[in-house]
Structures are given as structure tokens and as C-alpha cells.
Measured scan of single mutants.
Amino acid sequence: KMTIRVKGKELARRIAKEMKDRNLKVEIHEHGDEVILEIE
């Protein structure tokens, strides 16, 4: 399990899509400006 902190929703969406393309499970937690992606 891996956690990534990202500034900006646009970048977070791009990373999430990339991870889904690799068949990984992604959970997205938004905290205002910061987005936390949990990847399994």
C-alpha cells in the first residue's frame, strides 16, 4: 500500500487514471488544496 500527497486536483486525477490503467486500486481523499491518493 502506497500513499501519495499531491497539490492540485488536476494532477491527482491524472495520477489516479494512470494507476487505474495499471489495474491498481486507488482511493482519493481530498483535503482542500491537497489530495491524498492511497494506492493498493
Rank of each mutant, 00 (worst) to 15 (best):
K1P: 09
K1R: 13
K1Y: 08
K1D: 08
K1I: 08
K1A: 10
K1M: 07
K1H: 13
K1E: 05
K1Q: 10
M2L: 13
M2H: 14
M2Q: 13
M2R: 15
M2V: 15
M2E: 12
M2S: 12
M2W: 07
M2A: 12
M2K: 14
M2N: 10
M2D: 10
T3R: 13
T3Y: 09
T3N: 08
T3W: 06
T3G: 06
T3F: 10
T3S: 07
T3D: 05
T3I: 15
T3A: 07
T3V: 15
T3L: 12
T3E: 12
T3K: 10
I4P: 04
I4D: 05
I4W: 01
I4N: 02
I4Q: 03
I4L: 03
I4M: 04
I4K: 03
I4S: 02
I4E: 06
I4G: 03
I4H: 02
R5W: 04
R5M: 11
R5L: 11
R5P: 06
R5C: 15
V6D: 02
V6A: 03
V6L: 07
V6H: 01
V6M: 04
V6I: 11
V6Q: 01
K7Y: 05
K7S: 06
K7G: 05
K7V: 11
K7M: 09
K7L: 11
K7Q: 10
K7H: 12
K7N: 08
K7T: 08
K7P: 04
G8E: 11
G8Q: 05
G8S: 14
G8I: 08
G8T: 13
G8W: 06
G8M: 05
G8F: 06
G8C: 15
G8K: 06
K9W: 10
K9I: 15
K9H: 11
K9M: 14
K9N: 08
K9Q: 09
K9T: 09
K9A: 10
K9D: 07
E10Q: 07
E10R: 08
E10N: 08
E10M: 05
E10F: 03
E10W: 06
E10S: 07
L11P: 04
L11I: 12
L11G: 04
L11R: 09
L11S: 05
L11K: 09
L11D: 08
L11V: 10
A12D: 02
A12S: 02
A12H: 03
A12L: 03
A12P: 03
A12C: 03
R13K: 13
R13A: 14
R13F: 07
R13V: 13
R13I: 13
R13G: 11
R14G: 05
R14P: 03
R14S: 09
R14T: 10
R14N: 09
R14Q: 14
R14F: 04
R14W: 05
R14A: 13
I15K: 00
I15A: 00
I15G: 01
I15N: 00
A16V: 11
A16E: 08
A16H: 04
A16T: 05
A16P: 00
A16S: 04
A16R: 02
A16W: 02
A16M: 09
A16N: 01
K17N: 09
K17L: 08
K17D: 11
K17A: 12
E18M: 10
E18L: 10
E18C: 15
E18P: 00
E18W: 12
E18V: 12
E18R: 11
E18N: 08
E18F: 08
M19D: 01
M19R: 01
M19I: 07
M19H: 03
M19Q: 02
M19K: 01
M19P: 00
M19C: 11
M19G: 02
M19A: 07
M19W: 05
M19N: 01
M19Y: 12
M19F: 12
K20N: 11
K20Q: 14
K20Y: 07
K20T: 13
K20I: 13
K20E: 12
K20D: 04
K20R: 15
K20P: 01
D21E: 13
D21A: 09
D21M: 04
D21P: 00
D21R: 09
D21Y: 02
D21K: 13
D21W: 02
D21I: 04
D21H: 05
D21F: 02
R22Q: 09
R22A: 10
R22N: 08
R22P: 02
R22D: 04
R22T: 03
R22I: 08
R22V: 04
R22H: 09
R22W: 06
R22F: 06
R22E: 05
R22S: 05
R22C: 15
N23H: 10
N23Y: 07
N23Q: 07
N23E: 06
N23F: 09
N23I: 03
N23T: 02
N23A: 06
L24S: 02
L24F: 12
L24N: 03
L24T: 03
L24D: 02
L24M: 11
L24E: 02
K25P: 03
K25H: 12
K25G: 04
K25T: 10
K25S: 10
K25E: 07
K25A: 08
V26E: 00
V26H: 02
V26Q: 01
V26K: 01
V26R: 00
V26L: 04
V26D: 00
V26W: 01
V26N: 01
V26S: 00
V26C: 03
V26A: 01
V26P: 01
V26T: 02
V26I: 06
V26F: 06
V26Y: 04
E27Y: 11
E27F: 11
E27Q: 12
E27K: 13
E27W: 09
E27C: 14
E27V: 15
E27M: 13
E27G: 06
I28F: 08
I28G: 03
I28V: 09
I28M: 12
I28K: 02
I28D: 00
I28A: 05
H29D: 04
H29Y: 14
H29N: 06
H29P: 01
H29G: 03
H29R: 12
H29L: 11
E30M: 13
E30I: 13
E30V: 13
E30G: 06
E30K: 06
E30S: 08
E30L: 12
E30D: 10
E30T: 10
E30A: 10
H31E: 14
H31Y: 14
H31I: 14
H31M: 13
H31P: 01
H31K: 11
H31L: 14
H31Q: 12
G32V: 05
G32C: 13
G32P: 05
G32I: 05
G32Q: 07
G32F: 07
G32S: 05
G32K: 07
G32D: 10
G32T: 03
G32W: 05
G32E: 09
D33R: 05
D33I: 06
D33S: 07
D33Q: 05
D33M: 06
D33P: 03
D33E: 12
D33G: 10
D33Y: 06
D33C: 05
E34D: 10
E34T: 12
E34F: 15
E34Y: 15
E34V: 14
E34W: 15
E34I: 15
E34N: 09
E34A: 08
E34Q: 10
V35C: 12
V35T: 09
V35G: 02
V35Y: 15
V35Q: 05
V35R: 02
V35P: 00
V35N: 02
V35W: 15
I36G: 00
I36T: 07
I36P: 01
I36H: 05
I36E: 03
I36W: 14
I36V: 11
I36Q: 03
I36R: 04
I36Y: 10
I36C: 13
I36M: 06
I36K: 03
L37T: 00
L37Q: 01
L37D: 00
L37Y: 02
L37P: 00
L37K: 01
L37M: 05
L37A: 01
L37H: 00
E38Q: 10
E38P: 00
E38F: 13
E38K: 09
E38T: 14
E38G: 03
E38I: 15
E38L: 14
E38S: 10
E38H: 12
E38V: 15
E38Y: 14
I39S: 01
I39K: 00
I39V: 10
I39M: 03
I39Q: 00
I39H: 01
I39P: 00
E40M: 13
E40V: 12
E40F: 15
E40P: 05
E40I: 13
E40N: 11
E40R: 11
E40A: 11
E40T: 15
E40C: 14
E40G: 12
E40Q: 12
